[in-house]
């Protein structure tokens, strides 16, 4: 029996359109997870891990080599005044790798925002990039100043 291609063509086209629509719909769906260090984690909500200023002060006094203090302010502000030993890494809403911060040390991030907006967001971004030891300085820069803890300028540190 001879197959009637003309009769089956509309069905073929309908099938093709359905496949295309289904495929597009599947791709347009938002991913239900957030990739953390290459792993897809559903319902990911970042909760910052805080470090108290007293604890950070102790680390500085003990010259601890396990931590790296990260100042999220603009480099010009960091040059004027910062927590002793802090490195300058200004806040960006989208951090692009490569990140010049070590992965094997605890990063203690601070900012001058009232509710740790910049430091918390940076900690979250770094966590998503696979940094596993990230802490946010509780109270940030202004709490550090209120407590009367030591600050230095870039020039002070260069003199050492």
């Amino acid at each position: 029996m001879k197959h009637n291609y003309r009769r089956s063509r509309p069905w073929f086209l309908l099938g093709l359109a359905t496949c295309l629509f289904a495929g597009t719909a599947a791709f347009s769906q938002k991913p239900k997870c957030v990739f953390v260090d290459g792993e897809c984690i559903e319902g990911f909500v970042y909760v910052p891990d805080f470090m108290m200023p007293e604890e950070l002060k102790k680390h500085i006094e003990e010259r601890s080599s396990d931590i790296v203090i990260v100042d999220t302010a603009a480099t010009l502000i960091w040059e004027e005044e910062h927590i002793p030993g802090a490195v300058s890494f200004p806040y960006r809403p989208n951090i692009a790798p490569p990140v010049p911060l070590p992965r094997d040390k605890t990063l203690v991030i601070y900012c001058a925002c009232k509710d740790h907006e910049d430091s918390s967001d940076m900690a979250k971004q770094l966590s998503l990039l696979g940094y596993q030891k990230v802490k946010v300085l509780k109270g940030g820069w202004f709490k550090w100043l209120d407590l009367g803890y030591k600050t230095v300028s870039k020039t002070d540190e260069e003199k050492k």
């Binding site: 999220t72 302010a73 502000i77 806040y91 809403p93 925002c113 009232k114 910049d118 820069w141 202004f142």
Partner: peptide
């Protein structure tokens, strides 16, 4: 990008 800059608040919530 806009960098954080602390200013002295006169009439705002702080």
């Amino acid at each position: 990008p806009t960098e954080s800059i602390p200013v002295s608040d006169v009439t705002g919530p702080y």
